[in-house]
């Protein structure tokens, strides 16, 4: 057991947890933010993507300890109250989700991708989404959403 402190969506969270606690469990179980999902437990599906100091990370294969002192943003931290982030708005308008289970990870990956590359092309979007799998949509509307989100984010 040990104390871990990190900033989660702008709020300092300090919890006493087992040393082998995964970051995803720290966020979901210990802090109680359940918007980030577990799809495969093995770092493949991308449902658990969060931002760690601005970088997309799969929270199911990282120890909470490794995130000590970091700034983390999860899907809950993206919107400003009821005002959606432009990428969330774009997913909403383009029907970029169905069951919604992969969606938090998709959106987090998309935000990072576009933040780093404002003039992102469709090819780059498709490549950038390879680490996030979706079983419902066939990706068509997800790609359209990211394109629209990029435009809204000022690309």
């Amino acid at each position: 057991m040990g104390e871990i402190s990190l900033k989660l969506n702008g709020k300092l969270e300090t919890k006493d947890v087992a040393d082998n606690t995964l970051l995803i469990d720290f966020i979901r179980e210990h802090v109680g933010l359940t918007g980030t999902h577990v799809g495969c437990d093995t770092s493949q599906c991308g449902a658990c993507v969060i931002h760690l100091d601005g970088v997309s990370v799969k929270a199911c294969t990282m120890l909470a300890k490794q995130a000590e002192g970091s700034e983390i943003v999860t899907i809950e931290g993206l919107a400003d109250g009821d005002e959606l982030h432009p990428m969330q708005q774009a997913f909403h308008e383009n029907h970029g989700l169905q069951c919604g289970f992969c969606t938090p990870g998709m959106v987090m990956s998309a935000v990072e991708m576009v933040t780093k590359n404002k003039n992102i092309s469709e090819d780059e979007i498709r490549k950038g989404l390879e680490g996030n799998i979706c079983r419902c949509t066939g990706y068509h509307n997800i790609v359209q959403s990211v394109k629209a989100g990029a435009a809204k984010m000022g690309g």
């Binding site: 979901r28 933010l33 359940t34 918007g35 980030t36 999902h37 577990v38 999860t74 899907i75 809950e76 993206l78 919107a79 959606l84 969330q88 997913f91 909403h92 308008e93 029907h95 989700l97 169905q98 919604g100 289970f101 969606t103 938090p104 959106v107």
Partner: peptide
């Protein structure tokens, strides 16, 4: 739009694990 699109996009949609 999907009935809970807004909540699914903000992490507020509750699945059983949540």
């Amino acid at each position: 739009y999907q009935d809970s699109s807004f909540r699914q996009l903000t992490g507020r949609a509750e699945y059983i694990d949540d």
